[in-house]
Design a protein around this nucleic acid. Sequence first.
DNA 1: ACGATTCATGCAAACGTTTGACCGATTGCA
DNA 2: TGCAATCGGTCAAACGTTTGCATGAATCGT
Lengths: 342, 342
Amino acid sequence: MASKATIKDVARLAEVSASTVSRALRDNPRISEEVRARVRRIAQELDFHPNQMARSLVKRETRIVGVLFAESASASMGHPFYPAVLQGLGKVAGERRYHMLLSTGAENMSEEAAMRDMADSGFASGLIALTTLTNPEEGGGSLGLPVVEIGHPLNPENSYYVDNDNVQAGYVATRHLLARGHRRILFLGYDKRFFMMENRLKGFRQAMAEFGAPVEEDWIVPARMIENTPDFTHLGEIFQRAERPTAVVSMDDPLSIGLSGFLNTLSLTVPGDVSIVSFNNTQVGQYHTPALTSIDVNPRELGMRAMTLLINILKGKVTEPTHVDVPFTLVERDSVAEPRQS
Amino acid sequence: MASKATIKDVARLAEVSASTVSRALRDNPRISEEVRARVRRIAQELDFHPNQMARSLVKRETRIVGVLFAESASASMGHPFYPAVLQGLGKVAGERRYHMLLSTGAENMSEEAAMRDMADSGFASGLIALTTLTNPEEGGGSLGLPVVEIGHPLNPENSYYVDNDNVQAGYVATRHLLARGHRRILFLGYDKRFFMMENRLKGFRQAMAEFGAPVEEDWIVPARMIENTPDFTHLGEIFQRAERPTAVVSMDDPLSIGLSGFLNTLSLTVPGDVSIVSFNNTQVGQYHTPALTSIDVNPRELGMRAMTLLINILKGKVTEPTHVDVPFTLVERDSVAEPRQS
DNA sequence: ACGATTCATGCAAACGTTTGACCGATTGCA
DNA sequence: TGCAATCGGTCAAACGTTTGCATGAATCGT
C-alpha cells in the first residue's frame, strides 16, 4: 500500500505477463474469461490504477481538453457568462469522462500565446477557446491540436466553432423595440474589437432599415469604463435633447443597469421614458427594477455544444470544419414599453 | 514540422547527446556556456517543447493541481461564490505557472469518489477541494496526494485548509442587528449538513446570549427548496403573528432576495418591518432593492490562499498541517433599519 | 612530471504503460 | 494424417524524458 501498485505487481500476483494484464483490463477479446477474471480480482485487491502518464505517453492522447478563456481565465470569471459556459463544458466533459485543464496563462499573455502554451504543454488532446477578438496577432502555424472556438473565429471557413447568430440577435432585439413603435433607438456598448458586436450592429442596422428608422451614427456608442464600472456622463447631452432616444439596445445587463441608474439621475425613468433591450439575461438584470428584457444567448448550451463537438473531433467522428449555431431567446420583462406620444 | 520535435532531434542537430540537451535546457551547471547556447538555438529553431508526459513519468510530478467542487463542478457554478474562488485559484496558479485540472466527476459521484478518481488519474500533483459536508462517507485511506480544503474539514487536526471564521461571522452578523435594537431575530437557511452553518449558528447563539435575547428554536429554519428556488410558505405563520421577527440573519443573498419578495406579499417591507443581514455579498444582492447588507466571505481570497498553500506544500515549504483564516467583512447597505417601536 | 581533481559530456537504465510480432498448443478440414 | 487456421498468451520494443554513473580531457598542486 505504501506506493502505488503498478501493472507489474498485478502481473506477478496473477501469474501472467504485464501485456496480459493490460489486455485483460481493457477487455481485449484475446484474453480468456478465466484469466480476465483473475486479473480483475487481483487488480481490485491491489487497488491498481494504471498510470495515466505512462499510458498517455505511448498512446499519445490524453482524455484532457484544454479550456482557454480570453484575457486570462482569472479575470473573466467576474461576468456570469463565463461560469455558465464552463458549467456547460463541465457537464458534457463529465459525462464523457474527460477532464478539463484550465489555462490560466500568465497575467498579460496574449490569446495566441496562451493557446500555444497550452498546446505545447502536451497535456491536452484538444482545445476549447473563448476567442472573441477581431484581430489576434498573427495566426502563426497550426498548433497540432484540434481547436473548437466559442464565438466567431477569424477564419470561419476552416475553423470549428459554436456561436450564436449575432446578427439575428441584434435584429431581433431591435425589432422588438421597433414593433412597439420606437424609432429613435440608441445602440449602446459597441466595441469594434469584438466580432460579436459588429454582427449585432449589423442586425441593428437591418432592422432599422426595414422599419425605415434613421440610424444616427453618433448614437452608436461604446461603453466607456472607469475602473471597471461604466461611465455614462458623455451620454448626458444626447439624453437631454428634445429629440432624445426613446429606446436603447444595450450589449450587456450590467451595462444596462448602469444606464438605468444614470437615466434616473436625469429624471428619466425606465421604461416610462426610455425602453431598454439588453443582452445576456443575467440574474442581476432579472432582479433589477425594472427587471430587464434581455436576450439570453444560452451560454450553458454554448459550452455543451462546444465540448460535444470537440470530443467528436477527437474521436474522429467529425473531420470537416463545422459550425454549430446555438439559438438565443428574447426574454421579455419590464424594461420595455411603448414610447410616449410626442 | 509535421510532428513534434523530440529531444533526440535536437540532440542530433546540435551534435550532442540527449542527456546534454536535457541538461542544457534545464540550466544544469555542468554544461558549458558554448554548448548550452548552441542547444538553445537549435531547440528554438525546431520549436522544441519537452513532452510533459514523458517528463512527468520519470519525475513523478506534474505542475497540475486538481480542483474539485462539491456536487460535481458542473452543478455548482450557478452561484457566484464558486466562480469567485476559481478566479482566486486561477490567479495564483497562473502566476506560479501551474495548471488547474477541473474534476467534473460523473453526475452523482460522491465527493470522496471524485477525489479518489482525480487522484488515481495520476495527472494531478495535489488537490484543492471545496468540501463542505459534515460527514462524507468514510474517509478511507489516504490518497497519496496533498489536499488543501476550502471550508471546514472533517479532521481539522491533520488537514490543510483555508476557511473563514464562521462562528465569528455568525456572531458579527447577529450583533449588527442586536446593536440596532432588534431582539426577535430569525435564523434562515440553516442546513445541518454543512459545518459552516453549524458554526454560524453557534455565533448567532453567542451574540443572542450576550445581548440577553431569547432564541426561539423554531426560528432556526432551513431553506425549503422547490425545484431550486426557495419556498417560504411555511414562514407565513411565523411572520403573521403579532410577535413576529423584526430581523433575519439569512445564509445567502439569493435566499434573502426570495425572502424579501415573500415578505412583500405579506405586506411587510424590508427594512421597514423586517431587517435582513445576509451572506455572500453577491451582485444580485447589491442591485436588489433594497440593496442587501451582507457579509462578504471573500471567496477570491479563499481561492488565492488555498492555491498558495497547496503550491507551498508541493514545494516542500510547508509540511505541518496548516490552517489559514480568511477575514470576512460586513458590508452595510439598505436592508437593515432600527425596529419599529412596538 | 605525475597522480589527483575537476570539468564537460556520453551511456544506459529507468519511469509504467501499450502493442505488433511471435509461438506453442488445440482445433478444423479435407 | 497432414496442414492450416485459431486460440491464448508472452516478449520486447517503443513512447520521450531524466539522472546516476562512467569516461576522457584538462587543470592543478607539489
